[in-house]
Design a protein around this nucleic acid. Structure first.
Lengths: 210, 210
DNA sequence: AATATATGTGAGTCTCTCTTACTTTGTTTC
DNA sequence: GAAACAAAGTAAGAGAGACTCACATATATT
């Protein structure tokens, strides 16, 4: 849904949102590398310097796109864990949702991971990212011994790693051509998540050798 | 080891390799985003247009860095699977080696994954990357039912996903501060790999529902 | 030695990021 | 309701980088 300005006058009315919109479109066409503030401004119908009233620099505009990405991802996670009954099924569904998100909202995924943003510099983004993790944290806790939060974090790290990796491989074309590749990657990551959960006992005894 | 030119004359003697060297140093300092052909040329002591005699454009120079990265990674994989006795231990060691590579050779890792290179456009890179996979493929086969290559590929995908994900998380600072973070991430990814292997039976029955 | 080829240079074009000074519009305050 | 202020936009330009092209110089070939 495109962002409509209130008026067609000197003041745009909703420039930041419109810029994020245009930027995501542009990233979709040219990748993060090919993205430019100038072109985003042109497409939004404002001058090249206008974006700098709202975003300190190029990266900050990309960070705003990344925040949008977090919101979208959070919604997908919430939907994924809503239906299944067992925690394992919920996490498998979440993994698959993550991979599907990468495929279906590639510009968002690229803004989030392909831009090399220093997240420490964008507190709003760090917050949004933390909120995403929060969404699935309680599910992971149910699979941790004694519902221990630290163990849950370890499990979640591993799961995140799996999902992130599968998404990267999918976008890299290592699962074949879309759209079949997407379904395949989702199945695979869900299966891998289940495998990880099945064998998870090893995870929580890591540092103690024997 | 710095690349030494044969002479200090008009012709450099080994400009491509020297440029790759300088580029990796530059990527280390400024990240892939901050990398510029101009600065790499300056550091190598040649004119700004000299690199274009050897590399068609910026991305092709980065791709050459990525090829170097593949060679380094391949060596580390070979060393990692040499010592352990069981296939599971070998793969766990390979995962850890991958994560350690990301931490210790970050510029290479960034060139390989942070530049958003379209690998289809760089056959030499695709070849080098395939050779890396080849190095661990036989190990994965020993853990696949009936040594089936397709199943081995699935397992390897999942493992790659795990390692890639853990590396990303480590570089993102999600394991804490170096150098402890590196060891921690290596332990975790090794444990996760073992967990994945333990529960791997689920992996190979994916597409058949029931 | 003469020629061809590979490699490096300098100057120039184009685009991009970001800044500065200025303009226009909307809001507040008396 | 007008004056003052703040917010949001513009135009012009400095500085840097990607890439090109005509030219220079070294090396290889014959």
């Amino acid at each position: 849904m495109p962002v409509a300005p209130r008026k067609r006058s000197y003041h745009h009315g909703n420039l930041p949102a419109a810029l994020v919109d245009a930027s995501l479109g542009l990233i979709g066409e040219r990748g993060v590398q090919g993205f430019s503030v100038a072109e985003a401004a042109r497409r939004t119908g404002v001058s090249i310097s206008a974006p700098y009233r709202h975003f300190a620099d190029r990266d900050e505009l990309i960070a705003a796109c990344a925040v949008t990405a977090c919101e979208e991802l959070q919604g997908r996670f919430a939907a994924a864990i809503a239906a299944p009954e067992s925690p394992a099924d919920q996490l498998a569904a979440a993994s698959a949702a993550y991979v599907r998100f990468a495929a279906e909202r590639r510009p968002m995924f690229d803004a989030l991971f392909g831009a090399g943003l220093d997240k420490a510099r964008y507190p709003q983004l760090a917050e949004a990212a933390a909120a995403v993790v929060e969404t699935v944290f309680d599910v992971a806790r149910e699979l941790a011994p004694g519902r221990d939060p630290d163990s849950a974090a370890i499990l979640l790290e591993a799961m995140t790693g799996l999902a992130q990796g599968h998404a990267t491989l999918l976008l890299d074309g290592r699962f074949g051509e879309p759209p079949d590749a997407v379904d395949l990657a989702c199945e695979r990551v869900a299966a891998a998540t289940r495998a990880l959960i099945r064998g998870r006992s090893v995870l929580f005894s890591g540092s103690v050798p024997g």
